[in-house]
């Protein structure tokens, strides 16, 4: 999807990158930073995290469109897992399934009328989709037991709260970037 091309000359291999590539790289770096930062903080309940890296995904979705947001979100999942040493572990699969379902929800929700629905709605829907994706993996693969349903209300509550908070932060970011430009 990106327009970078690899040129092979007789002496060296060089990769030509486009402006879009640099943009995606910069934003992804920011998202990775937030993801890793969040991983350092202990959580009162395993699995409950604010997901502040999603603020970047939402910001990119609003400012640059869905394609760029999908790139940033998925690159963030892969790169952060490599940095944290989770690559291909259950943690990584959970992260990936959450991100994929989140993106699916965002893809659908971006068509909502903008007059009535702001990025806060997108954030809440993405947060719910994220835990739905994770709980699906937990139930089907990691803990195939009905007892998992006991945790659903806690995760849903966390998703609502952090969805609202992240949405409000993202809305402020978008507003301030509009004021500058």
């Amino acid at each position: 999807m990106t327009r970078s091309t690899i040129k092979k000359t007789s002496k060296s291999t060089s990769i030509q990158t486009t402006k879009a590539d640099h943009h995606i790289a910069k934003l992804t770096a920011l998202a990775i930073g937030l993801h890793v930062l969040e991983a350092v903080f202990p959580s009162p309940l395993p699995g409950v995290k604010p997901g502040i890296a999603n603020i970047i995904t939402l910001y990119v979705l609003i400012q640059y469109g869905f394609g760029t947001a999908a790139w940033v979100s998925l690159l963030r999942v892969f790169a952060s897992s490599l940095l944290l040493g989770h690559f291909l572990s259950p943690t990584f699969v959970l992260s990936l399934s959450g991100a994929l379902l989140s993106l699916a929800a965002l893809w659908l929700a971006q068509h909502l009328p903008k007059r009535y629905f702001s990025v806060i709605t997108l954030s809440i829907l993405a947060a719910f989709a994220h835990i739905a994706g994770q709980l699906l993996i937990v139930r089907l693969w990691l803990i195939p037991h009905a007892g998992v349903s006991y945790l659903i209300p806690i995760f849903a509550f966390a998703a609502l709260v952090f969805g609202i908070v992240n949405g409000v932060i993202c809305k402020r970011l978008i507003n301030s970037s509009h004021q500058i430009s």
Partner: peptide, 15 residues
């Protein structure tokens, strides 16, 4: 690019 409202407060649909 998607144009969203610049209002800071949640919109009706958000609520």
């Amino acid at each position: 690019m998607i144009k969203f409202s610049r209002d800071r407060k949640p919109l009706l649909g958000d609520w």
